[in-house]
Write a protein that binds this DNA or RNA. Sequence first.
DNA 1: TTGAAAGCGGTACCAG
DNA 2: CTGGTACCGCTTTCAA
Lengths: 331, 331
Amino acid sequence: MNLEVVAKRAKVSTATVSRVLNNVGPVKNSTRTRVLKAVEELKYHPNLHARSLAGGQNRTIGMIVSNMENPFFFDIYKAAERDARSNGFEMVIANTDYRADHLVNSIRLMIGRRVAGLAVIVSEMDSDLIAELTDSKIPIVFYDVGTPRQNISNIKVDYARGIEKAVDYLNDLRHRRMAFVSHHSRLGPISVREKAFRKAVARHAQVKWTIAANVDGLEGGREAAREILASSFDPTAIVCVNDFMALGVLRELREQKLRVPQDVSVTGFDNIKLSEYCSPALTTLHIPRDAIGRMVFQTLAPETGKQRQAGREIVIEPEFVLRESTGPAKE
Amino acid sequence: MNLEVVAKRAKVSTATVSRVLNNVGPVKNSTRTRVLKAVEELKYHPNLHARSLAGGQNRTIGMIVSNMENPFFFDIYKAAERDARSNGFEMVIANTDYRADHLVNSIRLMIGRRVAGLAVIVSEMDSDLIAELTDSKIPIVFYDVGTPRQNISNIKVDYARGIEKAVDYLNDLRHRRMAFVSHHSRLGPISVREKAFRKAVARHAQVKWTIAANVDGLEGGREAAREILASSFDPTAIVCVNDFMALGVLRELREQKLRVPQDVSVTGFDNIKLSEYCSPALTTLHIPRDAIGRMVFQTLAPETGKQRQAGREIVIEPEFVLRESTGPAKE
DNA sequence: TTGAAAGCGGTACCAG
DNA sequence: CTGGTACCGCTTTCAA
C-alpha cells in the first residue's frame, strides 16, 4: 500500500496526493476530497521512513537515559516530551541500564535515525562516544557529563554542593558516622558522586565515613544498606546518592528494626515524588526535573522562535528539602 | 554522508560497501578492511530510514502503554525489551497518558513506521482503533482489551477473579465497609475494573461499598482516598485498582493519622516491587509482568524458531499475596 | 491546479 | 568477488 495506489484510485498523481496529505501547495477542493476519500477507503498510512528519507527534515528528538525505572529520568523525559509534542515533535527514548554497550547501540541507533536532536542523560559516557557525537553534528545536550562544544550543550547539577548541604546538615545534628550509598557507574575508578561525598565529609574532622555501592534501584539500595549494617561501622546517618536507592535503604532499616530518624537518619537526592510518599518522607535535595526537561527540548529544538541555545552550559544548584527522615544523632 | 562517499573513498561500489556493512555475500578480505577503514575515517553511520525502506524487513517492535510512570507498565516493557534485544530486535515505545488522542497518534506512528509487531497495553482503546489495527495486518497483541482475531492476539488478566479474592479475604476479616479506588478510563461509562469490584462486593450481602476514581498515580490515589475519607462512608478497608494508586492511599491515611491495618486495611493490585518496599508492605494480587513481557515478544516476533502465536488468547489468574496492609476489621 | 520525474540513501539481483 | 542498476515510498522542483 503506497502513494501510487492511492493516486490511482483518486485518479491523480502521487504528487497531488502528497500535497493533500501534507497540506502544502494549492489543490482544488474537489480533488482534495477525492484524495482524502481514497486514503480513507484504502486505510492508507504513509511510510514514515520514506517520508523522512525524501523530506530530509526529521521532527524526532532522541533521548537516552540510564535507568527509566528511576522516576528521576522519567520525569525529565515526560517534561521534554510534553514540550516536544506541543511543538510537533515526537520523542524516541532509549534505556541503557547503565551498560556501556547498550549506550553505544543506542547512540548509533539515534544517529542512524538522523534525529533532529539528542539528549544524553547517562553517567556511563566515555570520551570516544562523546567524540562520535560531536562529529555527528547533531545538536546534543548532555546531562551531568562532558563540556560544552560546538553542537553540544550541557546541563549540570552541582552535585557536590548538594551533598555538602546534606552532610553539613547532618553534621550540625551531631552525626559522626555517615555512610554513603552510591550506585555503580562506569565513569572511572571512583564516581564523581562518591568523590563529592568524600570531599564533603573531609571538611568535618570528626566525621567517620564509609561507602557502599550497588545497582541503582530499590534492591540496590537495600543491598547496600545491608552491607553497611553488617559491617561494624554502625552509622548514625546514611546519605544516599538518590531517592530511589534511599527507598531501598529505608526498607532494610525497617526490616532490621532500626527506626528512622531516631536510630538512623537518611537523606536522598532528586526529590522524586516518591520521596514524599514513602514513610518516613525523605529529607532530600531537590533537582528541578521539570525545568531540566524543558531545557532539554529548548536546547535541541531547531529554531523554535529564538535561537537554539547550543554550546551552553547550565548549572543547577540543588535545594535542600527537610522532611522526616533526618533527626539528631542518637548518642 | 552516504554510501556513495564511503564507496568512493574505498574505491569500490556502493554494493560492496553494503555487503561489508551487512556481512552478507563474499567480500575479499583486503577489500573489506579497506571499506571498514573508510567507514571509520568518515565516521559513517548508515541511514536507518533508507535501510528499512530498501530492505523491506523491519526489526522493530512497537509498544504503546497508558502510563509509563506506573512501574507495572515499565516492568512489562523491560521484559519484552530484553527478549527483543537478544533476538536482534529493537523496541520503540509510546506513552498515551490515558489520552485517546495520544493513542491515535501513537498507533498511526507505529503503523507509519511499519513495525514488525505492536503491543498495545492500554485501557482507552475504542473499536475504530481496533479496526484500524486489524486492517494494518501488523501482528498485534493487546493486553486486557478486545478479542483475538487473525493478526491479533490477546493477553488478559482475570481482573474480576483477582478483585474477588481481595474482597473475599477482607470479608472474611469482617470488613463490612469497603471503598474501591479506581482510575479513570475511557472504556465507557463504567470501567471494567469498577464493574468487577461491584460484582465482587455484591456477593456479600452485608458489605457496604463506595467507589472513588482519580488519575492513575500517586496523587490520584491520595486524592481518591481523601475523597472517601471526607465523605461519611468511613471505610474499614480500601481496595485499590493497582499498587501505584495504593501508595497514594497509604500516604493519605498516614497523613490523617489512620493506622494501616489497625484502622483501615488496604489492598493493591499488580504486585509491583514498590508494594514490598512501602510501609506497611501491601497485600496485593500478583500479576506476572515478566511473563507477560516475554509473551508479548514471543507473540509478536516473526518466526522465532516456532510458529508465531497469532490469534491466541491467554488468560492470567492473579495470585493473592498477603502482606502487612490488611488485618481484621476494627469494630 | 496538476503531473512527470529527479532524487533521498540504501539493498539486492544480475552480470561479469 | 565486484560493479551496475532497478527499486523501496515519498517529497519537491519544473513545466504544463
